[in-house]
Design a protein around this nucleic acid. Structure first.
Lengths: 218, 218
DNA sequence: CAAGGAAGTAACTAGATAGTGCGTTAACGG
DNA sequence: CCGTTAACGCACTATCTAGTTACTTCCTTG
C-alpha cells in the first residue's frame, strides 16, 4: 500500500493501531524528556508514559535509549535547517537578509528551547550521536552556504567589508542568542535582572541585530 | 588550634586523617565527574573512587549528591569571579581594558572547561542551586560593576559610544567565547572544520576581540 | 477468509545507584 | 597516657532503571 493510500484510509477511519503515529508520539515525548533532563537524566519509563505508548514500543522502533536520543537529535537538526531554508534571503538586500537571519535564529530558539538543551546534551557527550548522521551533515552544508552568499553579495554591493569568515559570522549569530537563552536561569541571578521579561527579550534582540551589523559593516 | 598552627604541624608530619584535605579531594573529583556527565549522569561511587575517599565521607561533608553539586558550583563561580577581580583593568585605557577582559574570559573558559559544563548543567536544573547561594551573588555584583566602569570611562574619554547597556555587553563578551567552546563538538561537525585546532582558536579569539570593540566603538 | 506478520501489552530481571547503620581507629586536649 | 571526639571504612538495602520475555490482538494480503 502506498503512503498516499495509507493517509487516505487513515482519514476515513482512524486506526487503533498506527505505527507511524506511535513512532511520532514517542519522538515528541522523548524530545521533551531529553530536553528536560538530559540524556543521562531522562527516564525511558517517563518517555513511554508521556507518549502514551508501551515501553516495549520504544525498543521496537529505536533499539535503545541511545538510539532514541540519536533519532530525536537528528530530527531537531533537520527541523531547524528546513526552517532556515524557507527564509528566502536571496530576495532581500544584504543588510535586511542578515537582520532577518538574526531575528529568525532568535525566534527559533525562543519557540524551540528544547533544541538548545538537546545540543547542550549532545556536546556533553562529545557529539558522538551527531557524528553518525550523514543526512544532517548535508543539511548543515547548505545552511553554512547561506550566510556565505549574503556576505559575498554584501561585499560586491559595497555595504559589507571584505575578508569576513562566514563561519565565524555564523557562529557569532548563533552565539549571541543561544548563550542568552540557554543560560537564562543563571543569567537572571548573575545580572540580578529577569532576562525573560518581554522588554528584556525585545531589548536583547535589538542588541544582537546591532552587534551583527556592526561586525560586517565597512 | 589555629589554622596557622595546623598548617605548620601538617608540614612537619603529614597526617593520615585530614578533614580539609579530604573535603578538597572530594570537591575536585566531583567537579570533574559532574562536568563530564552532568548532575544526573554523574555517579557518587565514581566521585568517591576518584577522590580516593570513602563514599560515606561525601555524605558526611556534603549531606547529599545535590549538596555536593551545590558546593562544586558555588566554588566554580567564586573561582572565576576571584580571578576576574585580579585583572586590574582600571590601570589600562578603556579599549585595552576591554580587550584584556575578552582575552581573559576566553582563556579562562579554555583552561577551565568544567566551568562551562557546570553552568550548562545548572541551567538544565533552572539554577535552583545557585539561587540559594548568597556569597556568589555578592561576587557577581562586583563583576558586573567592572564592565560598567570601563564603559563609563570610555564614554568620558570619547572612545566608546554612549548608551550601551553594560549587562548586554557583559553577556555578549561571555557569549562569543562560551558558545564556541561549549559547542565545540557539534560545531566541528556542523561547520566541517576542527574548531579546536590551534590556528582556529587563535582566529576565533581575534574575531571576538574585534566584535566586542566594534560593538562599543563610536 | 485464513494465515502470517506487525502492533501492542503486562510482568519480569539483572544490575546499578543513592543513601545508611554501625563499628573502628587516629588525633588531640587535659 | 587516657578518654572523648571526629575521621574513616565496610557492608548493607530499598529502590530504580534499561532492557527483555512471552504473550495477545489487530490488520493486511493472497
Amino acid at each position: 500500500m502506498s503512503s498516499l493510500e495509507k493517509i487516505e484510509k487513515t482519514a476515513e477511519r482512524p486506526r487503533t493501531r498506527d505505527s507511524d503515529a506511535t513512532r511520532l508520539r514517542i519522538l515528541e515525548a522523548a524530545k521533551k524528556e531529553f530536553a528536560k533532563s538530559g540524556l543521562g537524566g531522562a527516564r525511558v519509563d517517563d518517555i513511554a508514559e508521556r507518549a502514551k505508548a508501551n515501553k516495549r514500543m520504544i525498543y521496537h522502533y529505536f533499539e535503545s535509549k541511545e538510539g532514541l536520543f540519536q533519532a530525536v537529535l537528528e530530527q531537531a537538526y533537520l527541523d531547524i535547517r528546513t526552517a532556515e531554508q524557507k527564509l528566502n534571503l536571496d530576495h532581500l538586500d544584504p543588510k535586511s537578509a542578515l537582520e532577518r537571519l538574526v531575528r529568525f535564529t532568535w525566534d527559533y530558539y525562543r519557540k524551540n528551547p528544547e533544541f538548545l538543551t538537546l545540543v547542550n546534551s549532545e556536546n556533553l557527550h562529545r557529539a558522538r550521536h551527531l557524528k553518525k548522521s550523514e543526512v544532517v551533515k548535508v543539511a548543515n552544508r547548505r545552511f553554512v552556504g547561506m550566510v556565505a552568499q549574503i556576505l559575498e553579495r554584501g561585499v560586491r554591493e559595497g555595504v559589507f567589508r571584505d575578508g569576513i569568515d562566514p563561519v565565524q559570522l555564523n557562529i557569532t549569530i548563533a552565539a549571541v542568542g543561544y548563550y542568552y537563552l540557554t543560560n537564562r536561569f543563571t543569567g537572571s541571578i548573575v545580572f540580578e535582572r529577569d532576562l525573560m521579561a518581554p522588554e528584556a527579550l525585545e531589548q536583547r534582540l535589538q542588541f544582537n541585530i546591532d552587534t551583527i551589523l556592526r561586525v560586517v559593516s565597512v
